[in-house]
Computed example of a mutant assay.
Amino acid sequence: MDWIFLIIAAFLAGALNAVAGGGTFLTLPALIYAGIPPVSANATSTLAVFPGYLGAAIGYRHHLGEMDRKDLYLYVTIAATGGLIGSLLLLISSNTFFSFLIPWLLLFATLIFAFGQSVATWLQDQSKDTGRFQHVFLFLICIYGGYFNGGLGIILLAAFLTFGLTSMGLMNGLKNGLSLILSIVSVLTFIWAGLIVWPQALSMMAASTIGGYFGARWAMRLPDRILRGFIIIIGTSMTFIFFTRQ
Rank of each mutant, 00 (worst) to 15 (best):
L31N: 00
L31E: 00
I32M: 15
I32L: 08
I32R: 02
A34D: 00
I36P: 01
V39S: 09
T44N: 06
T44L: 06
T44Q: 04
S45L: 01
L47W: 04
L47H: 02
L47K: 03
A48H: 00
A48S: 11
A48Q: 00
A48V: 01
F50I: 09
P51Y: 05
P51K: 05
G52K: 00
G52T: 02
L54K: 03
G55W: 07
R61A: 14
H62E: 14
L64H: 12
L64A: 10
G65V: 06
E66G: 11
M67T: 08
D68N: 14
K70V: 10
D71K: 14
L72E: 08
Y73S: 14
Y73G: 11
Y73E: 12
V76I: 15
T77W: 12
T77K: 13
I78Q: 13
A79W: 09
A79P: 08
A80W: 10
T81V: 15
G82Y: 02
G82A: 00
G83T: 12
L84D: 10
G86Y: 05
G86V: 10
G86R: 08
S87I: 09
L89Y: 02
L91Y: 08
I92L: 14
S94L: 08
S94D: 15
S94H: 09
F98K: 07
F100H: 06
I102Y: 01
P103I: 05
P103A: 05
P103S: 06
W104H: 08
L107E: 02
F108N: 07
T110P: 07
L111F: 05
L111P: 02
I112F: 07
I112Q: 07
F113H: 05
A114N: 04
F115H: 03
Q117W: 03
Q117S: 11
S118C: 01
L123A: 05
D125W: 04
D125C: 02
S127M: 13
K128G: 14
D129M: 10
D129T: 15
G131A: 09
H135R: 15
V136D: 04
F137V: 05
F137T: 05
L140N: 04
Y144C: 00
Y144D: 00
F148P: 12
N149C: 08
G150H: 09
G151N: 05
G153V: 03
I154M: 14
L157N: 14
L157Q: 10
G164E: 06
G164F: 08
G169W: 06
L170M: 13
L170Q: 13
N172I: 10
G173D: 08
K175Y: 01
K175A: 03
